[in-house]
Design a protein around this nucleic acid. Structure first.
Lengths: 73, 73
DNA sequence: ACTTAATGTCAAGTTTACTTTACATTAAGT
DNA sequence: ACTTAATGTAAAGTAAACTTGACATTAAGT
């Protein structure tokens, strides 16, 4: 089970935020947002909840688990 | 905003699992479960999602943010 | 063509999640 | 009183999150 996310879409859909803009609202660095969007690392629940809150979405609508690669049959 | 959780209750309510039992189902160590329950550290979203899935609960019903201490009027 | 904003990415450093091992305590069963 | 299961906790080590700083690239505006 691997973590996937729709952060980039959620961020733009909600108010055309930039990575920098979201980072400031959330209280983390731009690189952290970038790294999450590009699945370079998986955030803590606290950060994920904060991001979801800022973007006014349910956490599960942004972050979700999926069978390791190849869920597209 | 601090992370709080109802893991201990959720774990027992769902099937009377022990920390060890939950750890095995989730795929982490018993100490990790214990540390999360006692708020010694905040888990990754991936782990939190896995725990929620195993306990058949929505993540937000187990993990949630709350104003730093003193939420009691 | 030049500037500027936004993004991707890398490197070095700090902090914290998470592991294993181990031991003390408490509660329940015999 | 003795055992055993469950939990709390701590120490040492590894892995990964997250920081700052910096630089390259791409897209948009002038």
């Amino acid at each position: 089970m691997m973590l996937h996310n729709r952060l980039k879409v959620a961020r733009v859909t909600f108010g055309n935020l930039t990575q920098q803009g979201l980072a400031e609202l959330v209280g983390c660095s731009r690189q952290t947002i970038n790294s999450i969007e590009n699945s370079k690392f998986v955030p803590s629940v606290a950060l994920a909840l904060t991001i979801a809150k800022v973007l006014e979405q349910k956490l599960e609508d942004i972050f979700y688990l999926q069978r390791e690669e190849d869920g597209h049959s």
